[in-house]
């Protein structure tokens, strides 16, 4: 085994990519804020209306923003051959896939969660509800990234697979979106937050294996 285990390498590499060319970490943030900004122009600017749909808008923006940079996550590894090396390592490939997806969530998903309170306030959502809602956005965002990671791994060998990733991943977002939206309305005491956590755990238990099967296919 080399000095650096593939797990650590994958994790560090995904963190490093955030600052490399293409401004990886800024792209989802810009998309997230931009998508939310368009909403008052399209549905009207009345405070009462905005405050009732504000948390839902944040969910839609989060779901879409989670897919923005998913195309490059595994494709870059496939192109420079590092994926092939990982597939031959002793470390199971599903752990590498999980490390990669979670690291990607840390740099592109977590900043969006930290951004939900200011954007929520701008959308006239009750500020007191926004800080507890960050837990829901964090859990839901992780599930979005996990399913998006499966789609990204499946489309790794496809040129310009970004739209394909969206088509594959969006139907899998439905349970998380439903429970997430309910959880942000109910607040932290309601049962929907627990269901939301369950969908995230479900994604965590399935997505790494599916992603690693898809990565093996991309390597062959």
């Amino acid at each position: 085994m080399t000095a650096q285990s593939p797990l650590r390498a994958a994790f560090r590499q995904a963190l490093g990519e955030a600052w490399a060319g293409g401004a990886g970490v800024l792209l989802p943030i810009g998309f997230f804020a931009g998508a939310a900004m368009l909403v008052p122009f399209t549905v009207g600017s009345e405070s009462s209306q905005l405050s009732s749909i504000g948390t839902g808008i944040l969910w839609v923006a989060l779901a879409l923003a989670s897919l923005v940079s998913m195309e490059r996550v595994f494709q870059a590894d496939l192109e420079d051959g590092v994926l092939e090396l990982w597939a031959q390592e002793e470390t199971p490939l599903f752990l590498v896939a999980a490390a990669k997806i979670i690291a990607h969530w840390l740099v592109s998903g977590l900043p969006l969660v930290l951004l939900t309170p200011p954007i929520g306030i701008a959308l006239q959502v009750d500020p007191g509800a926004l800080v507890p809602a960050m837990l829901a956005y964090g859990l839901g965002g992780l599930a979005f990234f996990l399913w998006g990671g499966v789609a990204g791994a499946l489309a790794a060998s496809v040129a310009r697979g970004g739209l394909l990733i969206s088509l594959l991943a969006l139907p899998l977002f439905v349970p998380t979106a439903i429970f997430g939206a309910l959880a942000t309305i109910e607040g932290p005491g309601g049962p929907s937050l627990l269901f939301l956590g369950a969908t995230t755990l479900f994604a965590l238990s399935i997505a790494p294996f599916a992603a690693s099967a898809a990565l093996r296919l991309a390597v062959d």
């Binding site: 499946l154 899998l172 349970p175 429970f179 269901f195 599916a210 099967a213």
Partner: peptide, 23 residues
């Protein structure tokens, strides 16, 4: 191979989707 992986991932998700929209 890709189709089979996706179909199976979708199939384990279908009960969850059904349950969540039934709420």
């Amino acid at each position: 191979r890709a189709g089979a992986i996706l179909a199976m991932v979708g199939a384990v998700n279908v009960p969850l989707i059904k349950f969540s929209v039934d709420i």
